[in-house]
Amino acid sequence: MSNVLWQLSTSHFLALSAVLFTIGVAGALFRRNALIVLMSIELMLNAGNIAILTFARLHHDQSGHGLAMMVIAVAAAEAAVGLAIVVAVFRATRHVNVDRLTALKH
């Protein structure tokens, strides 16, 4: 197993990160359910985390790990607030369809 791991290069991790990020972007852009959009955002954050850790390892710089922990903390906070908003929105409108939530305009 370790053999396989050792064959993985930086590019593989970055590719994974890019794929995850793109899936996240697509989900945030195209899904209508606010919960799925939030999940997609989590995905983007974690894709970013993978990229950060990859570069940290590449450059043998431990500060990247710290930054990744920070991102996880922020993501948790964001999830808590975001889900609370989704619940509140659902109570008010009985749906969480972002296409129909257009009160945020001029």
Partner: peptide, 8 residues
């Protein structure tokens, strides 16, 4: 017109 409230 651009600011139509659609977050996406």
């Amino acid at each position: 017109r651009a600011q139509n409230g659609d977050v996406q």
